[in-house]
Design a protein around this nucleic acid. Sequence first.
DNA 1: TTTTTACTTTAAAACCGTTCTAAACTACTT
DNA 2: AAGTAGTTTAGAACGGTTTTAAAGTAAAAA
Lengths: 132, 132
Amino acid sequence: MNNKEKLRNAGLRPTKQRMIVADILLNGFNRHFTAENLQDEINSSGNSMSIATVYNCLKKFKNCGLIKQVETSKDTAIFDTNTDYHHHFLNEETGELIDIENEEISLHKLPEIPQGYLNNGIEVIIKLKRHN
Amino acid sequence: MNNKEKLRNAGLRPTKQRMIVADILLNGFNRHFTAENLQDEINSSGNSMSIATVYNCLKKFKNCGLIKQVETSKDTAIFDTNTDYHHHFLNEETGELIDIENEEISLHKLPEIPQGYLNNGIEVIIKLKRHN
DNA sequence: TTTTTACTTTAAAACCGTTCTAAACTACTT
DNA sequence: AAGTAGTTTAGAACGGTTTTAAAGTAAAAA
Ligand SMILES: [Mn+2]
Ligand SMILES: [Mn+2]
Ligand SMILES: [Zn+2]
Ligand SMILES: [Zn+2]
């Protein structure tokens, strides 16, 4: 499935800007990135895009499930092209994230979900500190 | 141990402002809160404090381990008086956090920590969606 | 096709949580 | 009491993100 189809499939109009973003993000190589990272990459690919559009686009992609946003308390939002169920190591000094594949971890015994709610995703973050 | 001792123990001067904050936060009842929540509570207790001092204080308390900060991608930092090892349910719509005690969950099989790093804390977040 | 409609992009301003600045103040040491 | 190191503060600055509103574009209707 090409990127235009992926966008249409997701219910998004394949605008010029969304295609540029899709070409960068949906190429099979996974990455963690910020809005600014993405805009830099757009610029260095010879294109350009307003930061508002970058954010609009990321919000749409996220709501469609084409990308995810990682749960961290960093002041900058971090997105993830890896939409599979997986977890992260977080280097708190640098903010760097490293994937933990689902098979590498196992959650035995989960707590009871509060009345009236559904489990809508589990995220495990293992914070890392540099060893002396 | 009273609050003044707790502060001294932590290597912090027991200033008037820190005592006000300690009286609110270190009373044995755990809570999740933002800087603004805390300032509101300070105000409604008849005291007042500049927002810079609230943030300074929270940073010191956090660095001393008197409180923690929860890992979430909300745009406002959320602090936690519960410093025991525990986890959270996160209602993504409202931002509300609910504690998951350590005994309620069990992580079997942890991934190998990357070379040169140490495990500096694990946080599990179970995102909740309201059931239809 | 042409026209209409809804959606999208954009630069710029606004927003908002948080940090910085630098001067006044306070806790502790001598 | 005097000295000094640490703290508080109002206000400005900062940085990531969202809003605004006008111009542009994609899809639908005619
Ligand atoms: Mn934050
Ligand atoms: Mn954020
Ligand atoms: Zn990832
Ligand atoms: Zn908690």
